[in-house]
């Protein structure tokens, strides 16, 4: 292909891709912009794009009206807690399946995946009743446990695909070199697996942060994370677009940024290593 025509093609592709990219991103951009408007400007017709009176008052009001920081902290505790707990259980499991595979390893992995197919409504009532009876309803601990369990298969699969890529010979070399199980885990496996563990951590924080079935159904006021905080904006009270936007922006910003960092791992984690 000639140089000039290939350059022209690149221009066309660039324009098209940017247009579509901006279109897909637009709802988020619009939300962020609206969050800085006054309520009147937020519903003004025709809407203004950037030449409006920028203000931070929506943020202050959202915080004072529905206590953003408490929900934010709940979200942090729930997503971090469930992920870390999940990792503690998943790392040994994934290690053993990756390095000491047995005949049934593949079956176990497939079975773990299949637990992910269990629709949450199928177990909603018992979990709700059990939690009610043992006092875990509307508690952070309860949500940490449930979210850990629903994401455990993904965590195990993701770690498994990372661990599997670490050549077994390296661990054998370490054993020949006199490393016991502890030294092997500490000096050889963990440093090699850190990138994998980190991306697993990241992706699962995102999944837990955005989980919106259990968090909505098992919380009331005390343990409600941001998903529930936002849901409280579903019934409008007067002019509320700017406040809704501010609340939305605050709910998604932390995770959007994390997500951008972990987009490569996302593919691997959510496809159970089937696509790399």
């Amino acid at each position: 292909m000639a140089r000039a025509s290939s350059n022209r093609r690149k221009t066309v592709v660039t324009v098209l891709a940017w247009a579509i990219g901006l279109l897909i991103f637009f709802p988020i951009l619009w939300t962020v912009l609206t969050s800085f408007k006054t309520e009147a400007e937020a519903v003004a017709s025709p809407p203004s794009f950037i030449n409006f009176h920028w203000t931070l008052e929506n943020y202050a009001e959202v915080q004072s009206r529905s206590d953003y920081f408490r929900h934010f902290l709940n979200s942090v505790v729930i997503s971090l807690g469930s992920t870390v707990l999940g990792l503690i259980i998943a790392i040994p499991a994934a290690w053993s399946m990756a390095f000491v595979p047995a005949k049934r390893t593949k079956d176990i992995l497939m079975w773990m995946l299949s637990t992910k197919m269990l629709p949450p409504v199928g177990v909603l009532i018992p979990i709700y009743l059990i939690f009610r009876d043992i006092g875990l309803l509307d508690s952070l601990l309860g949500l940490i446990i449930v979210l850990m369990l629903i994401n455990l298969p993904i965590i195990i699969w993701m770690l498994f695909t990372y661990f599997r890529e670490i050549p077994g010979e390296i661990l054998e070399a370490a054993r020949m070199d006199g490393a016991g199980l502890k030294a092997e885990l500490l000096y050889v496996l963990t440093p090699m697996a850190v990138p994998g563990i980190a991306s697993t951590l990241l992706l699962n924080i995102i999944l837990a942060w955005n989980e919106a079935f259990w968090t909505l159904n098992l919380t009331a006021a005390k343990a409600a994370p941001l998903t529930a905080f936002i849901a409280s904006y579903s019934s409008p009270e007067g002019l509320f677009y700017a406040k809704l936007s501010a609340a939305s922006t605050m709910a998604i910003a932390p995770i959007l940024i994390l997500g951008w960092f972990s987009q490569k791992q996302l593919v691997r984690g959510l496809t159970f290593g089937a696509v790399k």
Partner: peptide, 20 residues
């Protein structure tokens, strides 16, 4: 006897060097 206690050293086909 555990591998490390046998006083043997092994060189692997893939070298098995610690990449980090």
């Amino acid at each position: 006897t555990a591998p490390a206690k046998r006083g043997l050293a092994m060189v692997f086909q893939s070298y098995a060097l610690y990449p980090h």
